[in-house]
Design a protein around this nucleic acid. Sequence first.
DNA 1: GTGGTCTAGACCACG
DNA 2: GTGGTCTAGACCACA
Lengths: 119, 119, 119, 119
Amino acid sequence: MIHLDHRDRRPIYQQVLDSFREQIRAGILLEGDKLPSVRELAMELAINPNTIQRAYRELESEGWIASVAGKGSFVCGTPDSDRLELLAQFDTLVDKLLSTGTDAGELIRRIQKGDDDHA
Amino acid sequence: MIHLDHRDRRPIYQQVLDSFREQIRAGILLEGDKLPSVRELAMELAINPNTIQRAYRELESEGWIASVAGKGSFVCGTPDSDRLELLAQFDTLVDKLLSTGTDAGELIRRIQKGDDDHA
Amino acid sequence: MIHLDHRDRRPIYQQVLDSFREQIRAGILLEGDKLPSVRELAMELAINPNTIQRAYRELESEGWIASVAGKGSFVCGTPDSDRLELLAQFDTLVDKLLSTGTDAGELIRRIQKGDDDHA
Amino acid sequence: MIHLDHRDRRPIYQQVLDSFREQIRAGILLEGDKLPSVRELAMELAINPNTIQRAYRELESEGWIASVAGKGSFVCGTPDSDRLELLAQFDTLVDKLLSTGTDAGELIRRIQKGDDDHA
DNA sequence: GTGGTCTAGACCACG
DNA sequence: GTGGTCTAGACCACA
């Protein structure tokens, strides 16, 4: 379910974080779904439980999941703040691309292609 | 010319790096322009010359500038690799946005608005 | 009557505790009213009777209810200690707000608005 | 500067967290001030550096401070979100107090007294 | 068994 | 020397 890459420059806890964010965004994990327990996932990925817990803690503080002591961690969905942040990143990226002479039409074509794949 | 923010999470050398990349992308620095010397810039920004050195070394290895021993460092322009990398980032970002239900039309509108500002 | 939220960060027994405190404060439960039996409520909320037991024990030790062996648990009313504690919380909260530059007038206006709603 | 109470039910990292929040709110710590280093404070309070670091990390994510690797942690000021949260707490607290029959006038008098102390 | 906190000690990147 | 990440292993409250 989650793939760690030790050559990746991102810290492990963030790879876990990003993986779950991605899966929730993509609808692979749905609201109410139960995440694997901290110890379970740590065992499976062969890393320390504290590392998983840090990822879960951050996911909770960002509103992706809710953790209940003694019960487990459960998916809440994609928080609104995420969409806003992605849009801000989108704008700055588009700005960079346009300033290096990339044609606006090419970007639009790429969006439409992505939209077809997604539909 | 270059603005450093010590509160910025990025290391200093990378802020320098990003500043130059941005200025070359934006056409503020043009092919053939001479960059300030390592010592000069370190003095101006009140930081360690090693930090500037590291930024210049990286800029050269990415193809943004060419350093000539005894002469200085000169702008080459925006390398193709940069445009490709930005496009790859663009695709993954669009993918994330579409998968969370953002309308493709909204993204296209944002591009057109950015294009007008740029033109 | 009592609504449990398993996503709530508070432990279950405390949600039960808070619910009863709130209902007694609000006058929904009046002095002399009989609370549901531990078993009854545990069944209704689909949780462990121990959890209810703990909530009732705490309610009693704080003076909100009185338990009579073989008869049940009965509402006593809002204990003075509660009002004092809330007032203490109020003072520290006001202090925090004033020290960050919040205008005393704004706080007073909020109280008056709350008072109108309550009346 | 910071006082830990091991009988306090709050976890240590949160006592540290609350202490700094309070000092920043009260203007004891001003924008730009340098916090003690993680190791320094851990030594002084006789607790583990990780515990301090967790507090600092949280302070940063809430916008109270900015941490720069290799330089230290610096005060930013009281984030807007704090004032909003305190106001929300204020409203619910006022609601509880009014519903238990506390007179609105008494609350207002307490605010005015606090305001005099503060002025 | 679950999440949450804490300690003790290690290593890394940065400047 | 600084913050940041990670491990190994402990103890706690809750259900």
